[in-house]
């Protein structure tokens, strides 16, 4: 999970993910064309870091390597914390219901 946060803590890499989100399955050349402010070496290096973090998945198609945004690790982060808060809210609601219903039956 460290790798995911490190990979996301860089604006250029978030830009790269935005470009893939807009048009999934691009080659290195296509990504470079859409990001003229970055050198090919920089795009390639950032893609490597994103791949290492499993935020980018690649598929070989003939001689081309296509890059895809892989949202699964981000989903897992959401689930780890957001899901937990939802569970505690549900628990709080359930406790409140039990307490209120208990009060009613005590009347």
């Amino acid at each position: 999970m460290d790798a995911v946060f490190k990979a996301l803590a860089d604006e250029s890499r978030r830009d790269l993910l935005d470009h893939l989100r807009a048009d999934n399955g691009q080659t290195l050349g296509q990504l470079c064309a859409g990001l003229p402010a970055m050198t090919r070496q920089a795009v390639s290096k950032h893609l490597g870091i994103l791949e290492e973090a499993n935020l980018v998945a690649t598929v070989k198609r003939g001689r081309e390597k296509l890059h895809y945004l892989n949202p699964v690790p981000i989903h897992e982060i959401g689930e780890r914390w957001i899901g937990k808060f939802e569970r505690s809210r549900l628990q709080a609601l359930s406790d409140m219901k039990n307490a209120l219903e208990q009060e009613k039956s005590d009347e």
Partner: peptide, 11 residues
């Protein structure tokens, strides 16, 4: 056509 999406998870 090329894949529309690719999802990867490690279990």
């Amino acid at each position: 056509s090329k894949p529309s999406f690719v999802y990867v998870t490690y279990i």
